[in-house]
Each structure stands twice: as structure tokens, then as C-alpha cells.
């Protein structure tokens, strides 16, 4: 059993970047991604958006391109197939094995079992959608499917991440930048409650087809399947109605009752994450443009390299923050659950 060295030893984490298209994949690789993750153009992954993702042929090109550039290519297969979606999931695994992707990112235990039984040489990563926040859960997946890595949900504080990494039987990957899911991934049905489609079952959250913009006087209202998510005055910038980032009324106050529109950004705690020994730092955003992928990859590459070269002197450069905030949801950032008071 290969156990990644963790604990006090500083290791160099891989930078794992998103790509929803071949141009985005090239942007990631050219700007210093160690690994790029993609999904097929169907409901088998958690960014099932129109016009996004890869056909079989494009996925083959993606693998070739990444490997020629000495980068790794991961395939996200991270929805939970219902019985009538099962064959699509199985086909995606067969295809990923044929394409020789470097890892399959999976959430569903049934699919993990199929992959580990049929393709024991195929490296498995437990998706963030797998909701594993502790070493006991990871033990189960390691024992049954020999997973090699787990992506942690964005709900743990820094000290809790340290604890999991210390005891985990597998490598740990954490989110470093991107739109922030504030719920335990894989355990959130808010989107299907409102629209009938959820990340688990359909690979989407707050889908665009359910969004309606409405002018009411000088206010702009955003609705999701008829539910008022937010209302903006002329002076406010209107954001996409992701339903956990709307303004609602609780008791007598109207506020962002769950979370503000904001992005996760770990630049400030990069030395701590490296000291913990996380094996990879992940960027969210397969739905974003090649320009986003290029900019975020470039900035995180610079920051990680600076931290590796001289951890004691590491300082967040103002230009890094500026560049990241420009492309961040809500143009601002947070440490999210890593920072205990956020909770």
C-alpha cells in the first residue's frame, strides 16, 4: 500500500487546473498546470453545462496534448448515476481507461467498484462530491477500491485539514481558488429542490435554463424557476443567481443568509497547506473561459513556486490578489471554512 508522506514534511503540491474546452486546456498547460481535469460532454460530471466539455475525440486530443507537454490529464466522472444513467457512467469509465487518462475522479461507490474491478491499473481519485471529510471514510474507499487520492469538501478548517491529512491512507487534494461551494459537496440538494436538477443527479447547480431576469421598476430581479433569489438596485452589480448566494429574509433582516457571492482564495495560507503536506491544490472553474484558466493558473503557479523556493520569506504579492479578484465571483475572496471564524 503506497502511503504518501504527510505530516511535517514539506512536499511540492501539484497544481490541478480546470478545462471545459481544448483552448482552456492549452491555457492551463501553457501557464504551468501540473494536471488538468476535464469531463465528457454529458451528465457524467458535475459541470454539465451546454456547450462545455469534451467529446471522445476531443478528450483523446486533450490526453495527447497534456502528455506531450508533460502534464497529467484527469477525467471527472463525479455524478451519482440513477439506474437509467448507469450505462452512461460505465461507458465513461471504459472510455477513460482506453484513453489512458492519468486518473479518474469519481464520487459514486458503485462506479468506483466497477472501475476498480475492471481496470485495476486505472488510478482513482475520490471526488469532492464523495463528501469524505475524515480518515475513516477514506479508509473505506481505500479498502474497497484502492483509491489513491481524495479531494476534500470545502468545509474543514485548516487544523482539521491537517488532521485528516495526517491520518489519511491516501493523498489529499484541496481547493485553492474558485467559486465557493459552502455546503458539503455531494450532500446538497438545494438545486434540485428548486429546479429539479442537482449536482448529484444531473451535474448542475442552479442551471441557466431555470434563470429569469425581470425588471421591476428600477430594480432587477433574478429568479430561479420562479423563486426570487435576489433583487438589485441600479447601483449594484447583479450576479448569477446561485441559490445559496442570494439575499433572503430571516426574522426581520434581508441579507446573504447563507453566503455572499465570493470566491475561495488560499494564497494567504499556502505555506501552511504545503507544510501540512497536501499533494495537490485544485482550481475550480471548468465552466470558465480560457482567459480565466490562463490567469488563475499563472498566478497560482507563481505563488506555489515562490512558496517552494523560499517558504520563510513567502508573501502574497498584491498583484496576485488583484489578478485573482478580477476573475473572482463577486470580485472578492474569502478563506472560507479554512478560517474558523467564517464558520
Amino acid at each position: 500500500m503506497a502511503i504518501t508522506p504527510v505530516g511535517m514534511k514539506r512536499i511540492t503540491p501539484e497544481l490541478v487546473c480546470p478545462a471545459g474546452s481544448l483552448p482552456a486546456l492549452k491555457s492551463a498547460v501553457e501557464n504551468g498546470a501540473d494536471c488538468v481535469y476535464i469531463g465528457f460532454r454529458d451528465g457524467t460530471n458535475a459541470r454539465n453545462f451546454p456547450g462545455l466539455n469534451f467529446s471522445t475525440d476531443e478528450a483523446r486530443q486533450a490526453v495527447d496534448y497534456a502528455h506531450d507537454a508533460n502534464a497529467k490529464l484527469f477525467l471527472a466522472l463525479n455524478t451519482y448515476p440513477k439506474p437509467d444513467q448507469w450505462q452512461a457512467g460505465v461507458r465513461a469509465i471504459d472510455l477513460a481507461a482506453q484513453l489512458k487518462v492519468d486518473a479518474l475522479i469519481v464520487a459514486d461507490p458503485g462506479l468506483m467498484r466497477y472501475a476498480s474491478q475492471n481496470y485495476p491499473e486505472l488510478r482513482l481519485h475520490l471526488s469532492v462530491q464523495g463528501s469524505a471529510t475524515n480518515h475513516l471514510a477514506l479508509d473505506y474507499y481505500k479498502r474497497h477500491f484502492n483509491i489513491q487520492r481524495a479531494v476534500l469538501p470545502r468545509v474543514l478548517s485548516l487544523s482539521q485539514v491537517r488532521r485528516v491529512a495526517l491520518e489519511a491512507p491516501v493523498e489529499i487534494e484541496v481547493f485553492g481558488f474558485g467559486s465557493l461551494c459552502i455546503m458539503v459537496e455531494g450532500r446538497c440538494a438545494l438545486s434540485s429542490y428548486v429546479t429539479g436538477k442537482s449536482p448529484n443527479a444531473s451535474g448542475v447547480c442552479s442551471p441557466a435554463e431555470a434563470v429569469r431576469w425581470e425588471k421591476q421598476g428600477d430594480h432587477l430581479c433574478s429568479r430561479l424557476n420562479g423563486v426570487l433569489i435576489d433583487e438589485f438596485s441600479e447601483h449594484e452589480q447583479a450576479g448569477y443567481p446561485t441559490l445559496c448566494k442570494g439575499r433572503y429574509r430571516v426574522n426581520d433582516s434581508v441579507y446573504y443568509a447563507l453566503e455572499e457571492p465570493t470566491s475561495l482564495n488560499v494564497l494567504e495560507i499556502l505555506p501552511e497547506l504545503m507544510q501540512i503536506g497536501v499533494s495537490a491544490i485544485k482550481v475550480e472553474g471548468r465552466q470558465r473561459s480560457p482567459a480565466y484558466v490562463a490567469g488563475v493558473t499563472r498566478t497560482l503557479r507563481s505563488a506555489i513556486d515562490a512558496c517552494i523556493n523560499n517558504p520563510e520569506e513567502y508573501q502574497v504579492q498584491p498583484s496576485w490578489m488583484r489578478d485573482l479578484d478580477k476573475v473572482a465571483e463577486g470580485q472578492c475572496h474569502t478563506l472560507g471554512a479554512y478560517h474558523r471564524p467564517w464558520q
Binding site: 470545502r154 459552502i182 450532500r187 446538497c188 438545494l190 430571516v250 426574522n251 443568509a257 471554512a337 464558520q343
Partner: peptide, 13 residues
């Protein structure tokens, strides 16, 4: 029961 988070929304309120 639709979702769980690290954050306590009752305390936040």
C-alpha cells in the same frame, strides 16, 4: 433535509 455546511446559519442569523 437538503444540505449540510461547516457554517451555522442559525448563529449567522
Amino acid at each position: 433535509p437538503l444540505a449540510f455546511s461547516a457554517r451555522c446559519y442559525t448563529a449567522r442569523a
